[in-house]
Amino acid sequence: MRNVAIAFLTGFLFSIGLGISGMTKPEKVQGFLDIFGNWDPSLLFTIAGAIFVYAIVFRISKKFHKPFFAPEYFVPTKRELDPKLLGGSTLFGFGWGLSGYCPAPAIVAAGGGVTPVLAFLFSMLLGMWFFSITDKRYFSKK
């Protein structure tokens, strides 16, 4: 139950952080990605701020043997690059630029009453569902 409360708090604060930073406005995200045009560097400060805090806390977390409310850390340890990572990230990035939405800001915008984003979210769920089917059939056998 404590873990569920922490997860809720994380989602809630993350949401407010996205809203304050402007990440929930797709035109802001596209402006950040528009380096060949009218580039808006402001989200660079968002990314830098988020990475700065998390990098410090991650270092601190290594000093504790375990998280406060869980028996162990569930942090990915894999380091090798593979075609799935490279191909998936490229597809993801291309889709991200098209609308200016990625998963978290789209969910926040839906909560804020932005109705067109529901078309994005529904398609995103469809894409994830399609992945779960193809993954079982093709990718996992390798």
């Binding site: 998936g88 990035g93 990625c102 998963p103 067109p116 078309a119 994005f120 979210l121 894409g127 992945f131």
Partner: peptide, 15 residues
């Protein structure tokens, strides 16, 4: 919006 969602959904899970 639909193309973007499909790519984001599939790509993020694959990657």
């Amino acid at each position: 919006l639909v193309a973007s969602g499909l790519l984001v959904g599939f790509g993020s899970r694959l990657g």
